[in-house]
Amino acid sequence: MLHIKRFLKKSPWVLHYNTGSCNGCDIEILACLSPRYDLERLGVLNTGNPKQADIFLVTGPLTHRCHDRLLQLYSQIPDPKVVVAVGSCTCTGGVFKDMYNVNNGIDSLIPVDVYVPGCASSPELIMDGIVKALEILEGK
């Protein structure tokens, strides 16, 4: 019997959602797709559609209004799935910590598997995070 789960690692499709970030990490995610970093060689596709995604890339400190949307998107991703929090503010709230409209990081709402630090996270870090996420995905 083929170990189908092995292939989870080979074809991670990514959904990206911004919960109030400053764009810094978002453009770095875009840069990851660019020829220099070329995430597609790992099989990554930016699907933009939760139903076909495996990895949930979230950026931003989670503002109150993005709360419900984040949950909605998260619930639409089929298991197994991995959440990658990209950027300092996504991990902990970062510079926005304790601001009145901010929930201090997405782990207050959904379970996070990989934390990618940096403000803004560089493409290398994001790719590291995704590779890490792949290992977790395999184990799930």
Partner: peptide
Amino acid sequence: YDMLKLFSKTK
């Protein structure tokens, strides 16, 4: 790889 992966996803 994509196809085999899709097999293991929740239906």
